[in-house]
Simulated assay, not measured.
Amino acid sequence: MPETPETPEPQVRTLDARSLRGLAHPLRIRMLAALRHGGPATASQLAERLGESSGATSYHLRQLAAHGFVEDAPEHGKGRERWWKAAHDGTRFDEKLMFDEDPATRGAADLFLHEIATIHTQEMSTWLGNAHSWSQEWRRGSDISDFTLQLTAEQSHELIHKMHELVNSYRDLPPAKGAESVRIHTHAFPRTGE
């Protein structure tokens, strides 16, 4: 039986105070996500895709490059326009950044987390608005669920870790006919009783 090629582990960058401040801008976060999900692009292509000016996307691409989030993709360019690609597959947020001594770092952490939550909401709204155009199989293959559990902080951390392990185990599946890019969002947070 032939061996299935092993899927490489995703390259994930853990944010530190400096890189967080370089990324914590709504357009930069959206541009980085667009490059990760849509592949390499030029500043003009990103501007069109995101409804921005190419001057703004050019500037913010240079800022992302200065902080190591994007890099040149010369294999895609044949003209004068510069092509860019994401330097990593994902970003890991270190919760210590929310409690940093520097108010600028704490502000950047707050902006970053709120922008991620906004993106998740937008992606969900887009799915709901377009679900009718997908097959019944794909509508059955989608989910909007919420659960309320009584957990300790340690149990919640354990559950999150197990969910991440399960999701990541699907990265190793060989490409299948009919496969689509599927977004998985997880949110786990404590709330006070009502």
Rank of each mutant, 00 (worst) to 15 (best):
T4F: 07
H114R: 15
Q63D: 06
G39C: 05
T57N: 01
A87W: 01
H157P: 02
R36I: 12
R13F: 09
R140L: 12
G79E: 07
S145F: 03
Q122K: 08
E48M: 05
H185Q: 09
D89A: 09
A65E: 14
L151Q: 07
W127M: 00
Q45T: 12
P103W: 12
A108T: 11
R21H: 05
E154Y: 03
A47W: 00
T118N: 10
E123Y: 01
F112H: 15
T126W: 00
D172I: 01
R13Y: 08
Y170T: 13
I144F: 08
D102V: 06
F99D: 14
G141N: 14
T126Q: 05
L128I: 11
D110R: 15
A47M: 03
I144W: 00
Y170C: 05
R30Y: 03
P8S: 14
I29T: 06
M124V: 09
A47I: 07
A65L: 00
P26H: 09
T42D: 01
S125F: 01
L159K: 05
N168A: 15
R13G: 02
H88G: 02
A86T: 08
T126C: 00
Q45Y: 00
R49D: 08
D110L: 15
S135N: 05
L46G: 05
D102Y: 11
E154V: 14
P10N: 04
S44L: 09
Q136D: 14
D94C: 04
T152E: 07
E137K: 14
G68H: 09
L15N: 02
L15A: 04
L149W: 11
D94Q: 08
D172G: 10
S54Y: 08
G107A: 15
T118M: 02
F189A: 13
L97Q: 12
Q122A: 13
T118D: 12
E194G: 04
M1S: 15
Q155Y: 06
L61E: 02
R18Q: 13
L32D: 09
H132T: 13
A56S: 14
Y59A: 05
R18A: 15
R80L: 10
G55V: 15
P26A: 05
P103H: 12
A65P: 00
Y170L: 14
D143Q: 07
F112C: 09
S53F: 01
Y170Q: 09
